[in-house]
Nucleic acid binder design. Structure first.
Lengths: 151, 151
DNA sequence: TCGTTATTAAATATTATTCGCAATAATACA
DNA sequence: TGTATTATTGCGAATAATATTTAATAACGA
């Protein structure tokens, strides 16, 4: 279940001249232990860590999230107005996508193996190194449809 | 090519108790006349309009972009850090997706009819009313791969 | 073990986007 | 066709997410 051990994370960082810090290790661990379908914003991660007695500054959290997204360890999701959410980037059998209500932000996760295949093929065709591949469906959920257009 | 006339835009707005204003008409027209593969941020749209002698306030631009995205007329794209881009939301034969380099933001547009089918099916299954369906591939382009990891 | 330098915390800066408000102008309706 | 209603605009100010600067610290390579 846990894809990255401290050692393999360290290896991947050091390869690029970067360092393994306790902060980075802790943050990745939080995401690895997160229940399926859960994702966190920077602020939420910060609060969660504080609740566990871990004191990691918000700047470090922002830097780490960005770094890990660019390494392909985390996925950056756009599930709400105004801020990003992150989740662990799992490969094939766990890989999934999101159906999102643009009014109430209700989010439904779904799987479809074809999409990842299409994405990999397209990236390869253009010589890109794939990091993440996400289908986001913007839509209006049943209850917001009934709620007579308050936007 | 041009999906919405002034009349059909007015009808769609009035249906919901909203109004057709010159500003809204102008903004939709800009997007309808935009070359394929082009998309604009709020700021870019503002500049473009000023260049044409149109004076529409930035607040109105933000409000209009959001409104039209929620109506399904525009697509909200996340193609660069820090701000959103918008493009006209075209149906089937023009519908496309994006392959994005997370380092230099190079963007490649590609088509794949399967994706829209998958998205429509999933939305229908959950009773959602589909607005937009976009596959975004986050990756590293060939030249950034060669550029030895400056992030 | 030591020097180098990436990383951190904290405070501060930045900037995209939103909001409050008074003035204006689209619609609905008489 | 004129009038009342109220959605929309423009402006300026406010907000909030994220980035940056700096000095201190601590990983890493040798």
């Amino acid at each position: 279940m846990s894809l990255y051990t401290a050692a393999s994370l360290k290896a991947e960082l050091n390869d690029r001249g970067w360092r393994l810090t306790p902060q980075r290790q802790t943050i990745l661990q939080v995401f690895q232990n997160l229940a399926r379908g859960k994702h966190l914003s920077a602020e939420e991660l910060h609060d969660l860590l504080q609740g566990e007695g871990e004191q990691i500054s918000l700047s470090t959290i922002y830097r780490t999230l960005k770094l890990m997204a660019r390494m392909g360890l985390l996925r950056e999701l756009e599930l709400a107005e105004g801020h990003k959410h992150y989740e662990i980037n799992q490969p094939y059998p766990y890989h999934h996508h999101h159906l999102l209500c643009v009014r109430c932000n209700k989010t439904i996760e779904f799987k479809n193996d074809t999409i990842l295949k299409i994405g990999s093929k397209q990236a390869k065709k253009d010589g890109f190194h794939l990091l993440d591949c996400q289908l986001t469906i913007h839509a209006i959920c049943p209850s917001c449809q009934r709620a007579l257009l308050p936007v």
